[in-house]
Amino acid sequence: MKKKYTYFLIFVIPFFVFWNVNWVNKIEQKVKSFQRKAVQISVKNVFISNINSEIKVFKNDNKKKLQVTYYVEKYMDVKQEFFKDDRYMFANIEKGITPLLYKRKRKSTEPYGQIFEKIVYFKNKNIGIEKYRELPVYGNEDYQSLKLELLKKDFSIKNIGLKEYLQIEDKYKEIDKR
């Protein structure tokens, strides 16, 4: 009996792992394909939460990308990209450098901010994954080398669901109406 159970696990677990990786790869390819073929249709400069921001809209067939860049400070900015088709939001990519806020005076050994990259893919409204990585910014680093160092760092990955989908969709709708 144990032998049959072991064989079952040996064949079933890789199937589920492959199934999960397979849809993620398809979404990644969908994003790359869209990036190559998309056409920019509008650009607006707006203030969002008192931060100078630029909103760009790209379209291709039945897909739309909303790209927002927040210019927080001279070297600190964040870019968000929302990818949506007729049925649902299939990807959200955020990256940039943000300041860290302390409730007390910042110690000299603590970072001023962080450079980060967050990638969210949705198979549907209920199933998704979030990939995240970050590095501290102390203020005297070369930002290009920090970006390269961030690319070498592994993502932490977690499964997400409808709650996170709705939060991202709300952000998208708020920006899209501007």
Rank of each mutant, 00 (worst) to 15 (best):
Q167V: 13
M76T: 01
N52A: 13
M1R: 14
K171M: 11
K32R: 10
I13Y: 09
K153L: 10
N45Q: 15
E134W: 10
G128D: 02
D176R: 07
K171W: 10
F18W: 14
K123R: 09
F122Q: 01
K30H: 01
K118R: 10
K56L: 08
I51G: 05
K95D: 10
F47Y: 15
F155T: 09
I27K: 00
V21E: 14
K3M: 13
I160G: 05
I13A: 13
K26R: 13
E81H: 04
M76V: 04
T109Y: 14
N62S: 09
F82Y: 04
G139K: 04
R36N: 13
F82M: 00
K95Y: 09
K171C: 12
Y112H: 07
L66A: 05
Y112N: 06
I119E: 00
N124R: 06
I129N: 02
I115L: 06
K59S: 05
S156W: 12
K147A: 05
V137S: 01
K84Y: 02
S33I: 02
V120N: 00
D176P: 04
K95M: 10
G96Y: 02
I127D: 00
E134R: 13
Q67I: 05
D86Y: 08
K177L: 09
G128R: 01
I175Q: 06
K3C: 08
Q80C: 06
K2A: 11
E169P: 05
G139H: 05
E149K: 14
Y102H: 01
M1W: 15
I93E: 01
F34K: 00
A91M: 00
V72L: 11
S108I: 11
V43D: 12
K171D: 11
Q67G: 07
G161N: 13
L101R: 04
I115W: 01
N22F: 14
T69A: 08
T109Q: 10
S49I: 13
I13K: 11
M76Q: 07
I55D: 03
K26M: 08
P14T: 08
K44H: 14
